[in-house]
Design a protein around this nucleic acid. Structure first.
Lengths: 124, 124
DNA sequence: ATTAAAATGATAATAGATTCTCAATTTCAT
DNA sequence: ATGAAATTGAGAATCTATTATCATTTTAAT
């Protein structure tokens, strides 16, 4: 990453203003509004680059391709709306998760995903 | 599902004796030991069938293809070993998950996945 | 302004999982 | 034991997400 490009800036800006991790497609659409003609390959290339540089973090939910969110957020989990399919970052974390691991197992990490309807889609 | 086949029986038996959801590949290998020559298509066909009949349940972890476990188990979650990649069913569920949903959001379901080392791989 | 390196966009290519096709085999009611 | 219906196995085909290719454009140091 030697040169700054408007494409990369636009992608980063998207991630910063998002309420949750975005899919490459969502990023293509959003950043494409700022940089017309933006191509898929560029989105993927830059996401990979941003992750490598530590500026973005890859988020994977069950049954879907990777999403990306801005790095540096505190430990948190996600909520996916079953209507609009959007993913939102949540705050905090449920206690007592560690106790779910069976004896003899070493727990290193955990993921929690909530599913339901977001405020808008729950007819807000 | 009009005819019972040894293939289907073998697949079902695998699911019943497993400690967690199995991938089609794992099932192919395990059931293939009982029914030599077992084909992938047959595994997929029967899994689909078993799910339709309510005998098996599809489980999807982040970044991986579907796995299948026997139906009827109580609410539970899973642990994936980062070494052997095997997935294990856990018991119980962490309290307070519901409180993670933001105001205005309707929570319908949740998934929890723990990652780490299973008893065997943690050098047991 | 010039230029070499970096980055882009269009599209082809790849990869992995799952499904389809179809001839051959198996199941089970008779 | 027989035969129609169901199922199977091998391999081709499909689908989706991501990556590679490459000619063209952009960046930024000079």
């Amino acid at each position: 990453m030697k040169h700054n490009t408007q494409q990369r800036e636009a992608i980063l800006k998207c991630l910063k203003s998002a309420r949750g991790p975005l899919s490459p497609r969502e990023i293509l659409e959003a950043a494409g509004r700022e940089v017309p003609g933006l191509g898929v390959a560029t989105v993927y290339r830059n996401l990979k680059l941003l992750v490598r540089e530590g500026l973005a973090t890859e988020i994977v939910l069950p049954g879907q391709g990777s999403r990306y969110e801005i790095s540096g957020l505190a430990h948190h989990h996600h909520f996916q709306c079953r209507d609009c399919r959007m993913v939102f970052c949540l705050e905090g974390c449920s206690k007592g998760i560690d106790s779910l691991a069976p004896a003899g197992f070493i727990l290193e990490e955990h993921d929690i995903v909530l599913y339901g309807r977001c405020a808008e889609c729950s007819h807000g």
